[in-house]
Design a protein around this nucleic acid. Sequence first.
RNA 1: UCCUCGGUAGCUCAAUUCGGCAGAGCGGCCGGCUGUUAACCGGUUGGUUGUAGGUUCAAGUCCUACCCGAGGAGCCA
Length: 448
Amino acid sequence: MAEEVGIERIADYVGEEVTIKGWLYAKTGKGKLQFLQVRDGTGVIQCVVFKKEVTPEVFEDARSLTQESSLIITGMVRADERAPGIPGGHEIGVSDLNVVQCVTEEYPITPKEHGIDFLMQHRHLWIRSSRQWSALRVRATVIKAIRDWLDSQGFLLMDTPILTPAACEGTTTLFETDYHGTPAYLSQSGQLYNEANIMAFGRVYCFGPTFRAEKSKTRRHIQEFWMVEPEAAYVDLWENLKIQEQFVSYIVQTTLRERQSELESLGRDVSRLEKIEPPFPRIHYDEALEMINRAAAKGTTVPPEDEPLPAIAWGDDFGAPHETYVAEQFEKPVFVHHYPSQVKAFYMAQEPERPETCRSADLLAPEGYGEIIGGGERSSDLEYLERQIERHDLPREAYEWYLDLRRYGSVPHSGFGLGIERTVMWICGLQHIRETIPFPRLLGRIYP
RNA sequence: UCCUCGGUAGCUCAAUUCGGCAGAGCGGCCGGCUGUUAACCGGUUGGUUGUAGGUUCAAGUCCUACCCGAGGAGCCA
């Protein structure tokens, strides 16, 4: 038998006989000539079966193959720019074909269009389709880039618990579960534990699933999502931003380099991504507010609904249209820093000269993809934190350990959380977050 | 939780202001074709119109309640 190769490396085998093990993705026949599009998990390639070049049995097998039948194919690799595929440009002239399983029931997902409900009910099959497959390959690369960069920059992976005794930030709705008779909650952030970890390890990150039980039903929300949260001791707000812009740029550039075929198959305009490198613009909340209200006064509208941008008062948090408007003004992601303390988590450090603001920063992705990072400098002031816990009506006893961190060697420190799915959505140019994770958990949907 | 839109064949949809025989394309199946790209051509297959009730000679269409889905708001990553 010829050498078994992966389709993603097929260009290295032109002129050689190879074996592909995979599934029939699509087929068009033209009498004595059959075009099989075969996928093997690493790519899609066109395999051509000429009646004269194979045995009658093989030709009949090829002719009668059904969508998603599993098969093993052997043949000669040749370059041909007419050939579709991921990556395209090569095809296999089939000499032998072995049907592993011929699908006899109709495969539900045809090459025609389908509705979202139908596709989501068949998510376990939908992930075989090229757009889903490409996006999930990009996701894996984004995650690898994240870990490679952090590991190489001295951040140590420290896993934080998923079952937690209390709300981390006290604002969002949590999933409650039973922990041997006492209530426990699925983690919405590893943030507070990370602050303990940095006092032991200097620079750390946690990377895992987080859970938000809000009844959010938009293209940017899922109930279970993955977040990477780096945290570092002796790092202030401004150094934190430098880390973030290098980090995000590395993720984007690595994906551009390693997932060219997938981004192309997604139809992504990569020229927008090629521009993503440090430095990113930084604007103060006051400045952003002014920008928004100036535009609102002129009756500016924002996509995707083209509704008028509402004016806001100082102290208000930005809504989705405000974020979109601000991000639209820049080609790169933009940092908005020094939000009013009242709209941010209790642990954000106060700005000494403007105590009503905090040393926080959000990173807004371009092209309307919204907030991909939330972060900032954490308060190292014990008394301020005690007051904040009271002000936010949080159970003091649950935070005693956290306050200990300010009693024993408190230092300035910062961190941030990057949402994996929103980042993948932006890099892939997708319209909905549900396509960025294999099995999304959406409001009212937990099958399959 | 609130607002908007929707539910008709396996899938995507149509069904004439104002109620009158349930349709098309795709898929599947059969046949034809040596360069297809969501191929094409001919034939064929296909229905509890989301559920329950009501009005009517007659309901996919009108009325009531409910169920399910989509998009958005708030909140956030």
